[in-house]
Simulated scan of single mutants.
Amino acid sequence: MPRGSKDKYTAEQKRKAEHIEESYEDRGTPKGEAEARAWATVNKQSGGGEKGGGSGKATTASAKAQAKSDSGKRAAQTRSGHDRNSKSSLESQSKSSLMTEARSRDISGRSKMTKAELIKALRTK
């Protein structure tokens, strides 16, 4: 027999458990075991009773869109701190990023260059 109160379950979960229980009983499973299996199935499918949580504030689609836009603007501000070819910009990039940039500018010998050599080559070309 299942333990605990079922008060925290939604009406849909209760109906689903009842339906599953009836199905087990129709196949000859004893009532107690059918009920236990039904609630185990409901718990597995939906994670148990109603879940509390969240801030209690409903987030509208426009609020989400505004938050996404604000996030993008903040990210763009951090990227636009210096010119792409400035000394600090090139030195802050990874070697693979510098290699990609050198490939796009068709700098020959790039595959054998060190990071410092890549930076120097990118500054001159």
Rank of each mutant, 00 (worst) to 15 (best):
Q77W: 00
Q77S: 13
T78C: 05
T78I: 12
R79L: 12
R79Q: 13
R79M: 10
R79F: 06
R79G: 06
R79W: 03
S80F: 04
S80N: 15
S80P: 03
S80D: 15
G81T: 09
G81M: 04
G81W: 00
G81F: 00
H82L: 12
H82P: 11
H82Q: 14
D83L: 11
D83S: 13
D83V: 07
D83M: 09
R84S: 11
R84N: 07
R84E: 14
R84H: 04
R84Q: 08
N85H: 13
N85A: 12
N85F: 15
N85W: 15
N85G: 10
S86N: 07
K87D: 15
K87W: 08
K87R: 07
K87Y: 11
S88H: 04
S88L: 11
S88D: 14
S88G: 07
S88V: 14
S88M: 09
S89Q: 11
S89E: 11
S89A: 15
S89G: 03
S89C: 05
S89N: 10
S89V: 06
S89D: 09
S89L: 06
L90Q: 09
L90N: 06
L90W: 10
L90T: 06
L90K: 05
L90M: 09
L90G: 05
L90Y: 05
E91M: 11
S92C: 01
S92M: 05
S92N: 11
S92T: 07
S92A: 14
S92G: 11
Q93K: 06
Q93M: 13
Q93Y: 02
Q93G: 01
S94L: 07
S94P: 06
S94E: 12
S94R: 07
S94Q: 09
S94W: 02
K95F: 02
K95Y: 01
S96H: 11
S96L: 13
S96E: 15
S97Q: 12
S97R: 02
S97C: 03
S97M: 04
L98A: 02
L98P: 01
L98I: 02
M99N: 01
M99T: 02
M99G: 01
M99R: 01
M99H: 01
T100Y: 08
T100M: 13
T100H: 09
T100R: 12
T100I: 09
E101N: 06
E101R: 08
E101W: 06
E101P: 00
E101F: 05
A102N: 03
A102M: 03
A102Q: 02
A102Y: 02
A102V: 01
R103C: 00
R103I: 02
R103Y: 03
R103L: 05
S104F: 02
S104P: 03
S104H: 07
S104D: 13
R105P: 04
R105Q: 12
R105D: 09
R105V: 00
R105F: 04
R105C: 04
R105H: 10
R105E: 12
R105I: 00
D106E: 15
D106N: 15
D106H: 12
I107W: 03
I107G: 04
I107D: 04
I107L: 09
S108M: 09
S108D: 15
S108F: 08
S108W: 08
S108Q: 14
